[in-house]
Design a protein around this nucleic acid. Structure first.
Lengths: 249, 249
DNA sequence: GTGCTCTAACTTGTATACAAGACAGAGCAC
DNA sequence: GTGCTCTGTCTTGTATACAAGTTAGAGCAC
């Protein structure tokens, strides 16, 4: 317990390209893109071969994904993508509402509008001719909610909110395949920002809660549909393959 | 990506004694007991030797602790116990208040009292002659707040609350070295439970917010004191040792 | 003493080897 | 066909070897 070397210096260059980090992101992408379906089994060697790496960084990535509730490990029996549990998503949405309402309270209590909020207004209260109408709006939507919480000033709250958003992103982004949700998103975000600007906390919170609840209900339907579709596709593509598709949720 | 083996079975016996898990807990204990001080540097080999294990499970434990914000890794320059950042604790306390207030709202909205709540009443509203007055009360205090949130029924909210409590536990437990806080804890917890039982949500929330805020303020003072003490002790014990104690928070 | 260069000993990141349990399926008794 | 045992091959958990970068400090020029 006596390091002889790096005694009094304050080390720097903390971040560096890291194989484990890259693989972490790639596995997550596979899950998000339904290349790995909820319920699928796979092994560390599978992933290692797929990404031309050894098991070590793969294991690091998988343990991180496990901690984040995306996968499960079974003792000497392989890994499994966690089956969807819609109850969990419901609960995450509830916590999201809670956090964003708290953020609104704090923002409305401020005497002057923080800079990030003005940027949000510029984007979401823009003329309809400038609207983004494709899948990129999904990212903008995340930013809206994330920056709103960030602007409230509690970094830990912001981090928790980011983690939650990331976990439900897998289904939330599916919300933006329907045109009327695009229009509604602009309108609702705009109204929320206006309410905050006028320090009408209760009104803003009501709008936000309704906005998130609608999003949740829409997403629920779409996801079930997507899941069935993906499962059918997968079954079809692997008729003489031995992949398992058991979905036990 | 085609596992040939564990196809259609639903694996069981998930949990097993795991070296990495054990080391994870032991390192965390060392941090909590100030054997590893905030700011201390150490290497994976140090820990591995200490626990008579290889670097592999040690790394797994450390990466988990890093994700939970207890330590930092510096590229090829060793690990460091994260220096205390009291701003972070303040923010965590705020989120705790938020979550517990939300739990109170949900509990007060219920028509009948959940079973766990009755157990809490049995303990905290007991006669003073049955009070626990030593360090074990710290654990009971955690349980009070944890079970309150759990009883509200949102498992994700409960998990987040548990994570937060765990992170601030390192300083929160120091609160129970003073007798008057023991008495106050019993009184305040009792009052909160009574208010919930009578569906007085606003009153219960006020009590809870005040209760947590007092705890936070007390703990802040005590921690600074403990930290100075531990640093002095550590310096004294390692005069002809080369451990580093730089505290750069 | 001051500042430079070099080096040796450390560090983490990654790959690989080995240990030990889990399981599918062959073979066999019946 | 049914059910048992056995075995080979798969799995993760752990230890070790190697790669590549960092740094403290010796030695030296001045």
């Amino acid at each position: 317990m006596s390091p002889a070397n790096f005694l009094n210096k304050n080390p720097k260059n903390n971040r560096r390209e890291n194989l484990a980090d890259r693989i972490y992101g790639q596995i997550k992408d596979m899950i998000f893109n339904f290349e790995l379906l909820p319920g699928d089994f796979f092994s560390e060697a599978d992933i290692a071969e797929r990404f031309q790496a050894s098991r070590t960084p793969v294991r690091e990535a998988l343990y991180r994904l496990r901690r984040e509730q995306y996968v499960d490990v079974h003792f000497r029996s392989g890994w499994q993508v966690k089956p969807f549990d819609f109850q969990v998503f419901e609960e995450l949405y509830d916590v999201r509402i809670l956090l964003e309402e708290a953020a609104i309270d704090r923002l409305c209590a401020m005497t002057e509008t923080p800079e990030p909020l003005q940027e949000l207004r510029d984007f979401w209260l823009a003329d309809a001719s400038e609207w983004i109408t494709d899948i990129r709006l999904s990212e903008k939507d995340r930013e809206f909610h994330s920056q709103l919480v960030a602007a409230a000033g509690n970094r830990e709250m912001h981090q928790i909110h980011r983690d939650i958003s990331e976990r439900i992103h897998i289904i939330r982004r599916l919300d933006f395949t329907k045109d009327y949700r695009i229009e509604a998103t602009y309108e609702e975000h705009g109204a929320i920002l206006e309410a905050i600007a006028h320090h009408r906390a209760d009104h803003a919170k009501r709008l936000m809660a309704a906005h998130i609840a609608v999003s949740r209900d829409e997403v629920r339907k779409i996801t079930i549909h997507m899941l069935q579709e993906a499962r059918a596709r997968h079954l079809d593509a692997s008729n003489n393959d031995s992949n398992d598709l058991s979905q036990n949720s």
